[in-house]
Amino acid sequence: MSSSAPASSGTTVSATTGRPMRADARRNYELLVEAAKAVLVENDGDAPLEDIARRAGVGIGTLYRHFPKRLDLLEAVYREEVDALAHSKDQLAADVSPWEGLDRWLHLLVGYVATKRVLFQELVDAIGKESELLTHSRAVMMDSTAAMLKAAQDAGVARADVRPDDLVRIVGGCTMMPHVAPDQQERMVQIVLDGVRI
């Protein structure tokens, strides 16, 4: 486990002490997670920790204080992505129309799966495909897609014969291939949406 983890209240706590982190430590933790996500995606999962620390604007010692092992950092990036995905689904469901929610959701899902692709195999090798982290990720992705699709179908703006796993697999196919530019991913998702809308 990483040396820092988000508490249920949204406060980041140190896993070693169980106490909330100081504001500067929490900021460094968040900067490192964001930097790791960007550097890992840019380098297809192959990124020295020194590059991540540099992108975050902190020293390598700060990185190791928060994440003693590379796996700790990968788990933190993956978990942060899952939590952000679940939060985004709730926001979209509350704030926009069912079709706009599904549209935005699938575009968010592309970004999530792109990050997942570069981390997935390394995490599977280290913690197993059926680990809590990875099974939770699959559940969030499928349940959230089902909720957004059902809202659009109930509103009469999405085909009734489309299933959540259809969308997840198609989005996965748009993103899991190596060397696909982000603009091409966006175009492919838009083609999928055009086929779903009625």
Rank of each mutant, 00 (worst) to 15 (best):
E81A: 15
S137R: 12
V33H: 05
V140L: 01
E130P: 14
D46L: 06
V58K: 11
V168G: 12
V96Q: 14
Q185L: 14
P178A: 05
V58G: 02
C174V: 11
A139F: 00
L73Y: 03
L119I: 01
A151H: 11
D103N: 12
Q190L: 09
V77T: 07
C174A: 11
A38L: 13
A158M: 04
L106D: 10
V157N: 06
L102K: 06
A7D: 12
V140P: 03
A5M: 04
L109N: 14
G10V: 05
A160E: 13
A53K: 03
V192W: 13
Q121V: 04
A47F: 10
L149S: 10
R27A: 04
A36S: 13
A15E: 08
L102T: 00
N43E: 09
P68S: 07
R117C: 14
M141K: 10
G57M: 04
S3I: 03
G18D: 15
V171M: 11
P20I: 08
T12W: 05
I60S: 09
V180S: 11
E42C: 13
T115W: 08
E132A: 08
W105Y: 11
G45D: 11
Q153P: 05
A114D: 09
V171D: 15
D46E: 14
V39F: 05
L193Q: 08
R104T: 13
T11W: 03
F120E: 08
D103Y: 14
L106G: 12
D165L: 13
D125F: 07
E81M: 15
S4W: 03
Y64D: 01
A181E: 15
D44E: 11
F67T: 01
R65F: 13
F67S: 06
L149I: 00
L73I: 02
K69G: 07
L92T: 04
D166Q: 10
G101R: 11
E81C: 14
P68N: 10
D83A: 02
V110G: 13
A84R: 00
R197C: 04
L149N: 07
A25P: 04
I52T: 02
A114I: 10
Y29R: 09
S88G: 10
L71W: 05
V110K: 13
W99S: 04
K150H: 12
D194C: 14
L74V: 09
V168R: 13
Q121H: 05
V33G: 01
E130A: 14
H179T: 06
R138D: 06
A126N: 03
S4L: 06
H87W: 12
T11D: 06
L40S: 01
D125E: 07
D154Q: 10
G10Y: 01
P164Y: 02
D46G: 10
D161Q: 03
Y29Q: 13
Q184H: 15
D103A: 13
H87I: 02
T11M: 01
E100I: 03
Y64K: 05
G195I: 07
L74F: 12
